[in-house]
Amino acid sequence: MIYFYDGTQEAFLTALTLSFHDGEPFLTSGNKQLVLGQETAFVRADPEKAKRVEKRLLSFDKDCMHDLDTLLRSGDANKDNVALVYFRLIAEKKRPVRTMLGEDAALAADECIRRVGFEVHRFHGFVRFLQSASGALYAPISPDNDICDLLVPHFRARLPQYPFVIHDVKRKKAAVYDGEHTFPAPLEEAEIVLSANEEKWQKLWIRYYDSVNIPSRERLRQMRGYMPVRYWKFMPEKTRPFTDGEEGGGAPFPPS
């Protein structure tokens, strides 16, 4: 049976209960090509069922809901089913299975979770803020996984005086810190009036980036391994705004 659901935790847990006696369930929140003759079910969240199974799962593994949150953020097309199989294993073993890496289900979940965590770590470094005329900071990002709100605590702790917005342009959503509270918000496009000095600081940063490099030791493959090209889109040192005609010149920044 193929189970479709809306991608929320509650609907996931509902689907989990419904699929318990199913031999080979498959769960997805995306577009799954239907194979003729395959049974399908559209699962709607049932808060009561979800609560009950959550309580039971937590009695097996007190940290498993954190895993679920992480898994459902993954950009992997198969993440829903990876999570389903993982939670079925927890239910079967009645204990945490995190380190049972001999089990395919645990291994797949472990990799998925690790990839999300690693991307959060990477973005602690790769986020680039632009300062607006009002002093607030704005950072567009386009991560593989749905992580923009996971980045907030880190930046809030270091920049408590600055309101900021981290904008996932791919998922059209944002994580906002208004100087006091943090909250998620849908966000299609943002229009930013840059502060008077923004251009100068970006230029200085690009100068710094170029000067600190040792050209005689070029290792481009290594650079791209550590900082994949898909992340360059919002990094001034790679897009090189305000430096027209110079080497490495690319798309204007911020991209339209």
């Binding site: 470094g125 050209p215 550590y226």
Partner: peptide, 12 residues
């Protein structure tokens, strides 16, 4: 935490 990488493969 690494913030960027230069063409020589080193981290900033």
């Amino acid at each position: 935490c690494c913030h960027s990488f230069t063409p020589d493969g080193r981290c900033i």
